[in-house]
Amino acid sequence: MQNIIEVTQLTKSFKGQTVLNDISFAVPKGSVVGLLGSNGAGKTTLLQSIIGLHLADQGKVSICGEYVPNLSAATKQKIGYVSQESELLTWMTVQQIIDYTRSFYTRWNANLVNFLINDWALNSSQKIHKLSTGQRQKLSIILAIAPEPDLLILDEPVASLDPISRRKFIKTLLELNTNDAQTVVFSTHITSDLERIAAEVLLLKDGSIYFHGDIDELKEKVAKVHIVANQKLPNQLNIPGVINLIKTEHQASVTVENINDVNIDQLSEQLDANIRIEPLSLDDIFVELHS
């Protein structure tokens, strides 16, 4: 499958502080990728670097085969972007900004706009500065998806939305992606949403990629090992890829990067212990990684 985004050895610093460190990955056309990471992990910088709002210190980014920031007008028309804090011309009315944004694009799904304006209870004649944060976010999303972009980049799109609007947004996003024509890359803190929409996850930690792949694959790899020993546990447990460890004299809970690398039988025998493996949800994995 052809890659719509290719990031190679991307490094970005601000005032001497490295935010993104040697990041490389590719996003195939038609996929839905969720970007997960704690505050300050570099999610927004990564998304903004992809579309050219930040210029890379090192490395390269390409979209549809064109290097960022030298994108052609045709390629830019294929990209939809919603920033974390909606960037709107606040002095306009909802209808004015719809008309204004429409003037930029050759493709515009007016039916979808009208449907979402009604469905999300936005008033066309309302001044934007009077909209709530959530309403502004909704409007930003509508403006981004109306041109039916091939690549939709969303920076925490649901952070300001109420649960009902979140579900509606996810439903819309899934419908847009049904024919695999649209690629979606979005960042979020809400792992349940991510699991619902995305098949792929890109996990950022301290400016580097911790994991990139199927969510199921991640859930199969990362697990928690509960150890209850008949004798006193040694100071050092010989377990590879420990993410997190809680240990008492006879018991231990160990979160490991890849459960397949742990020889459970051997460990049980070595420690004279009962061992139970607990599969973790995406939410648990996220917490374990950052605890």
Binding site: G52, L53, P69, L71, S72, Q77, Y81, E87, F104
Partner: peptide
Amino acid sequence: HFAQRYLWLKLPVDGF
């Protein structure tokens, strides 16, 4: 600065 960010993906112009 704002206009640059706002128009970057919208303005139909080739190249940076």
